[in-house]
Design a protein around this nucleic acid. Structure first.
Lengths: 318, 318
DNA sequence: GATCGGCCTGCAATCGTTTGCATTGGTCGC
DNA sequence: GCGACCAATGCAAACGATTGCAGGCCGATC
């Protein structure tokens, strides 16, 4: 495995010159740069990241942290982040950590040391846990906002507000919202947005909190019926899917109730008559990666940016 | 950020002793080990992986390479791999690389240098490309077998053979197989297994090759009808899903044809009357990770193991 | 023609760990 | 009671890159 010295020997210059020719070619005579590049190619040289990391303190690695890899919501975020990481010459490492316990925090701190920065999707861990990680390395938070921390989130206030507004326009007078897990920032946003939009125009029944699972959605079916809602907005697609299946089994769907979903779900179950609301998860990931890299490359102070990506609300065509 | 020397100074021993106390405690007096551990804890010390990697040549990082992160088939493999990586104290880095072009090979070689080993899901790249990567670092191949390379695959021969056998037992006399992408090892296995099982008992129509997409499945619907098959086995779940939607639109499904699927799909579309065939992707990932770590830790020669995980064939209950 | 300045390049220190070898002190066996 | 051995520790040399500093060369300017 060729080293800097090998290349240097081949070209007949010093290691320093080779290093500079490859990383700061403006500091080296163009002819030398060319010869170095050629030799590096021939020897199939690539810098040893451990060695360069040792002196620069940078690893070229960015971590993406999700609470739970099984939760389908996070996969597109990871995909988007990895795509952008690759195009920006960074490596992406992936960790599963809900940031709930102190041990989670300790583990993540340990990981944070080994990377340049983190993209953190931690919907449930306490603010303080997140802040503790922020003290270690630059962090971009995903789908959550905490004062003083860069973040990229879906604009739930607008998205869910509009969705509720549409249902009201359609004549619904009792809405049910199936709330997500306790402590979720996104859930709070959505609850508030829907409540504000509904206020004075319709009754809003909030059920939950519940975990974002198929089972939770199915389990709440009877409560939904008891509440007398004519339209239901579930926090998460899996909750919605569970509810749809349970209501179908009871013969209530597809005709007597509206359950909004994500478009992937409505496509899969062949439903074209219900409004859908979507986040582009991969865009969340790429935006977060862009923001983090920008932050890492910034020489001076960090600007502290908070990005909200619009949600896509699609109404049935009828 | 505390270093070995800081801990050493605190305890009053040399760096070497601290290093050994943490990594080879059997070489150090128990009392010293205890004091070192305590001091390390207090200082919140963690070894700098760049530094240790520089001298040991090991990074503690394993790469998982998939052709395409968008393809849903690979996500569970990544999930399984990451779960096992975490429990074995390894970091997982994720890369998207189809290993088709020479540039792909070059890129992946470059990545390979930075990691201890690779889990490689490369269904389509030529054998030689895979072998070239193997020369760089230990590799475990997923869902593909190449002579001389460790691998973990779904046992398609048994799975799809049995599936075809079941369809024959049900009385089907014309089967259609919708083949996957050209050059896929899994596709070859499946084609052969189905052909062998069908031989002499029924007619087999093989359509394809086609990409593993919804669109491809939908596009082939007319050919399936023209072939006069009464049962269809698609290579990939997305192909099957596309076909199902297209046939439903033509009014052929759900009654006049059997399209086998993966169980996630049949659940989503609410179909309980069709046989399903599944790979446990996450098990594929954990098994691959186990195999790779074993290979990396092996002091002597590598045993060259090839694992086949059984596929799950589920028949309708009627 | 001497001085100055700018461009290239080399020297050597440095990052934080690991590890072969030397050293120490003590124990055991004969 | 003496040598041999062993356990525990320290010393110092790596690992491979980056980078501040200094030196050499050349052209330009006065």
């Amino acid at each position: 495995m060729a080293t800097l010295s090998d290349v240097a020997a081949r070209v007949g210059v010093s290691k320093s010159t080779v290093s500079r020719a490859l990383s700061r070619p403006d500091l080296v005579a163009p002819a030398t740069v060319a010869r170095v590049r050629e030799a590096a190619d021939e020897l199939n040289f690539a810098v040893n990241r451990a060695a360069s990391g040792l002196v620069t303190g940078r690893t070229g690695v960015i971590a993406i942290v999700v609470p739970d890899l099984d939760n389908h919501f996070f996969t597109p975020i990871v995909v988007g982040a990895q795509r952008r990481a690759a195009s920006r010459q960074r490596q992406l490492t992936i960790a599963a950590n809900p940031l709930l316990t102190h041990e989670d925090v300790r583990d993540l701190e340990r990981l944070a040391r080994q990377v340049d920065g983190l993209i953190l999707a931690a919907p449930l861990g306490p603010d303080d846990h997140v802040r503790q990680i922020c003290r270690t390395r630059p962090v971009v938070l995903v789908d959550r906002e905490i004062a003083g921390v860069c973040s990229v989130s879906a604009d739930a206030a607008n998205g869910f507000g509009n969705l509720a507004g549409h249902l009201l326009d359609e004549g619904h007078r009792t809405l049910a919202y199936l709330g997500g897990p306790a402590g979720s920032w996104q859930d709070a946003q959505r609850t508030r947005a829907i409540a504000e939009r509904t206020a004075g125009r319709a009754e809003l029944v909030v059920l939950g909190p519940m975990p974002p699972t198929f089972a939770a959605g199915a389990a709440v079916a009877d409560d939904v019926l008891a509440a007398g809602a004519s339209a239901v907005i579930p926090y998460a697609s899996q909750i919605g899917l569970g509810l749809v299946f349970a209501l179908r089994a009871r013969g209530v769907l597809p005709d007597d109730l509206v359950v909004t979903t994500e478009s992937v779900i409505s496509t899969a179950i062949g439903d074209t008559r219900t409004p859908t609301i979507d986040v582009d998860g991969s865009e969340l990931g790429t935006a977060a990666m862009d923001l983090l890299i920008e932050e890492l490359d910034a020489v001076g102070g960090t600007p502290l940016r908070t990005i909200r990506l619009p949600m896509q609300v699609t109404l049935p065509l009828d």
